[in-house]
Simulated assay, not measured.
Amino acid sequence: MSSNKEADLTTAVLLYAMRCLAEGDQQALRAMNFGPKELDALKEMNLADLYRADALRVHCLQIGLNRDVFWPMLDHLRHQRESEDLQRTLLVADAPLEMMQQLFGVSSREYTRWRRLLTLAPAVGRPPELNETDTHALWYAWQDKVQADDKSTLTAEDYLDLQQQTGIGLRSIWALVQRWETYGEGSSAATSGRVVENGP
């Protein structure tokens, strides 16, 4: 039996109403204009009745858009979509687990699952130590970003920007920046015993 858009709408709302009834959500049922008689009729319905509704090309609903809810909902969905896109970009760029945990609250299980879905090679070992030239380049790029934006910690977008500016891998960037943030901007130590000459 083929369904149609009217039947799909009716079935979806009736299923929602039946769930509200089962959970005792009287407020939601009243908002949909279900009164005592309608609730009694709803109690008698079963899945076979919903299946039969697929043959109907009418619906018994008055649909209205609540713009006060609609736009915040779309903004929330857009924010989630952009956040997930950013997380995928970071993972493809080989972001370490600690970075994803701190920036997005990603668990180790989620991290592993996403890497498998993205067919990324397993991350093994520590990032390679940078040479002095790359260390200096990253230090100054990080300092410029911190001072320009007047921030103490970087965002996910900032880390991607540093990677694009310096060409250094995210694992190394994360490890060094975390070390520098721990030591403070006034520290003269870059990392691994190297001193950043003319550094702040």
Rank of each mutant, 00 (worst) to 15 (best):
Y159T: 05
F34G: 08
R57W: 07
E185F: 10
M99L: 08
L170C: 01
V146I: 10
Q101R: 14
D68S: 06
Q164A: 15
E44L: 06
E84L: 14
S187A: 10
N66L: 01
N33M: 12
A148I: 04
A7T: 04
Y159A: 02
L65H: 05
I168T: 06
D158A: 06
T10F: 03
L103G: 00
L154F: 13
L15D: 12
M32K: 07
A93H: 13
T153F: 01
A93W: 08
T133F: 02
A190V: 15
L9G: 08
K145T: 09
E98R: 15
H59A: 10
G169H: 08
I168W: 08
V177D: 07
E84H: 14
W71D: 11
A190S: 15
A121K: 13
D85W: 07
Q178I: 00
Q147M: 05
D149F: 04
V58E: 13
A12L: 09
L103S: 00
E129S: 09
A22E: 15
M45E: 09
L9T: 11
W174A: 04
K37G: 01
G24E: 07
E132H: 06
M100I: 02
E84T: 13
L74P: 07
R81G: 08
R126F: 00
C20Q: 09
Q178Y: 00
A95E: 06
D49M: 05
C20D: 09
G64N: 10
T119Y: 07
W114K: 13
Q178S: 03
M32A: 09
